[in-house]
Amino acid sequence: MEFTLTNFIFYGFALMTIASALVVVTVRNIVHAAFSLMVTLFGVAGLYVFLQADFLAATQVIVYVGGILVLILFGVMMTSGRLEMRIHIERGQLLLGGLISLMLLMLLLTVIANTPAWKNLTDDGTELPPTTERIGELILNGPFLLPFEVVSVLLLVALIGAALISRKEVRDE
């Protein structure tokens, strides 16, 4: 392996992601786990940058760290007074969980093995054009228009549902 700055930073990000992900699943303190998840998500965002997917990286941070993780932390802090917990797992569930994990691993391995032209994008020094425009083209003017619209309608329905649940009861007069 050649020591270059890029490699160094890449392995730094990879190590950061894996280590913090391990902390997420092993640590007892549930708030520590949540904050550790933040580091994991940052690491993944960094890896996206190495794939020259800058838009995706920023979206990763803005959606997962700024939105979903804050929601998780809200949930943790407002619901449970107990922060230290020992997770007790039944044998049958252990088996099921192991099976699912194995299937996920196999899926990922299959994807990695079947990807054609698997190469380091930064090796030849060419920079890919920014992805923002192409993502926009694909979503709003291309093959992914229908899924995009379906997802947005789903989100709209969820939004209306949330508003309906949380609104004040209107008394009939």
């Binding site: 904050f35 933040m38 800058d54 838009f55 920023a58 979206t59 941070v61 803005i62 760290v65 700024g66 939105g67 993780l69 804050v70 932390l73 920014p130 923002t132």
Partner: peptide, 18 residues
């Protein structure tokens, strides 16, 4: 000069909440 400059700013400033 990021090509996603303003989006990057939004992303980074949303981490302040954490």
């Amino acid at each position: 000069d990021f090509n996603i400059g303003i989006f990057y700013i939004m992303a980074i400033s949303s981490v302040i909440v954490m």
